[in-house]
């Protein structure tokens, strides 16, 4: 497998690695600051994301990462697979377990199939947290960057 691109953000310890063969990964280590920023820009004021006592009263271990932030990481993994001139046509996922600030979230994408006519690739996506638990499971459909062929 050939690594095609690696990006690193200044905050949130995010990485995305694109590969041209079976798998691509994206990682994120959201912390409390990231949850606050993300909640602010999306106007998500649900207390399970920042109020520890409230989150525990809801049966959670503590504040949890927003579903939309999981979605961003899943999209990032799919986009890494699509390549710079490709695009993501669809991302879907089910939330299986909560993630908390400090968890290292890793999304692995693997090719399920490729449409021989359109070239669209269907990817299976799995997001794990630090302890190995599956946080999200889903799939994506990408229109790949044909210039990489």
């Amino acid at each position: 497998m050939t690594e095609a691109a690696t990006t690193e953000a200044a905050t949130g310890a995010v990485t995305a690695k694109a590969v041209t063969a079976e798998a691509a990964t994206a990682e994120l280590v959201p912390d409390e600051v990231m949850l606050l920023r993300f909640g602010a820009v999306t106007r998500n004021t649900h207390r399970i994301h920042y109020d520890t006592a409230f989150a525990r009263s809801e049966g959670l271990a503590g504040p949890v990462v927003m579903a939309q932030l999981h979605g961003c990481l899943l999209h990032r993994a799919a986009a890494a697979h699509a390549g710079p001139a490709g695009r993501v046509r669809e991302v879907s996922w089910q939330n299986r377990a909560p993630a908390h600030p400090g968890d290292r979230l890793t999304v692995t994408s693997t090719v399920r199939d490729t449409d021989p006519v359109s070239g669209e690739i269907t990817l299976d996506l799995v997001e794990h947290r630090t302890d190995g638990a599956v946080c999200c499971r889903g799939h994506a459909v990408v229109v790949p960057d044909r210039t990489r062929d």
Binding site: T45, H46, R47, A67, H75, V91, W93, N95
Partner: peptide, 25 residues
């Protein structure tokens, strides 16, 4: 709980716990 009253249809004013189950975009 900080959620919008109309975010989850049918739950306005009810003391229920709300979580995201998943999305297809």
């Amino acid at each position: 709980d900080g959620m919008y009253r109309d975010e989850v249809p049918g739950t306005d004013g009810l003391d229920v716990r709300l979580m995201a189950g998943g999305q297809a975009v």
